[in-house]
């Protein structure tokens, strides 16, 4: 079980995770900082306070599962995994390099603790449903979480899976949508609008919780509410800011898949930690 961390402690961890994200992408010279930074407050409480898991025993059968559907944000997942003890934090800087366990997009065969391989958008929720059905069949009580991007919701498979989860009343499934309103070609509403989003999920028979995805107490509350839902899957629609925490990356489409250079990395770390620097 997890020890209870205060909001202040979680905030400190979020800063470290943000720093990891910009360091990893800067060191690799490529990667996806924008959508990694927008998901920090979703994954930090999940890995540090919500998931029932054992980082030292990644194949523990009773563990809750996290499926990263938007596989391009490996940096945020690798960081929370390292910082919860799945592997050494130093290994983060091997990201995207030849021979690394931290592949450019997650490979579950390369790194224990990853529950799926991803990088082709729109496929994760189906996997989560399958795991949830297996849990039911095997009489296990683990929960399955799945993180998707808002642009990713344009994939038809997401809505096929949305129907599946509701049809089979998979209340052990909790979907997370990082609603940062940006994809590669621009604003989601300009490329191909997904709104009204809450109404869509509701009409697909999901329990919908809409929150500020950077407010840790709202995020924690949403996870609790999702867990108490019976007979329906839950989706947490998290309104976020792409590039959150790094001033020049915030709400800027060009930082979707671009690495900071040395000077930009320094500025980013300043933004994250302020003048006093890391703890």
């Amino acid at each position: 079980m997890q020890k209870t961390l205060s909001i202040e402690e979680l905030k400190d961890i979020c800063r470290d995770v943000r720093a990891d994200i910009v360091r990893m992408t800067a060191e690799a010279g490529s990667g996806h900082p924008g959508g990694s930074l927008s998901s920090v407050e979703l994954l930090v409480p999940l890995y540090f306070s919500v998931l029932n898991h054992r980082p030292s025993q990644p194949d523990w059968p009773e563990r809750d599962r996290f499926i990263l559907s938007k596989g391009h944000v490996g940096p945020v997942l690798y960081s929370v995994m390292a910082r919860t003890g799945y592997f050494p934090v130093e290994e983060l800087l091997t990201f995207r390099k030849m021979g690394s366990r931290l592949q450019g997009h997650p490979s579950m065969k390369a790194l224990p603790g990853l529950e799926s391989s991803s990088g082709s958008l729109g496929q994760g929720l189906s996997i989560a449903n399958g795991l949830a059905l297996a849990a039911r069949l095997n009489g296990r009580s683990f929960r399955v979480y799945c993180l998707m991007g808002d642009g990713e919701l344009q994939e038809g498979q997401v809505w096929e899976a949305a129907m599946t989860a509701a049809h089979y009343k998979l209340d052990n499934v909790c979907a997370l949508v990082d609603y940062n309103n940006l994809q590669i070609d621009g604003k989601v509403e300009d490329v191909k609008n997904i709104a009204p989003l809450s109404a869509k999920w509701q009409s697909f028979n999901w329990h919908v919780i809409e929150i500020d995805g950077h407010d840790l107490s709202q995020v924690l509350k949403a996870y609790r509410e999702a867990k108490s839902q019976k007979g329906k899957p839950t989706v947490i629609i998290a309104h976020t800011i792409k590039g959150k925490g790094v001033s020049f990356m915030e709400n800027a489409a060009e930082w979707h898949g671009k690495a900071p250079n040395k000077a930009e990395l320094e500025r980013a770390l300043q933004d994250i930690y302020g003048e006093e620097g890391p703890r």
């Binding site: 690799a28 010279g29 490529s30 990667g31 596989g71 995207r96 390099k97 592949q103 450019g104 997009h105 490979s107 391989s117 991803s118 990088g119 082709s120």
Partner: peptide, 8 residues
Amino acid sequence: VGPDGATH
């Protein structure tokens, strides 16, 4: 394609 890895 390089660092994006096998999926890409």
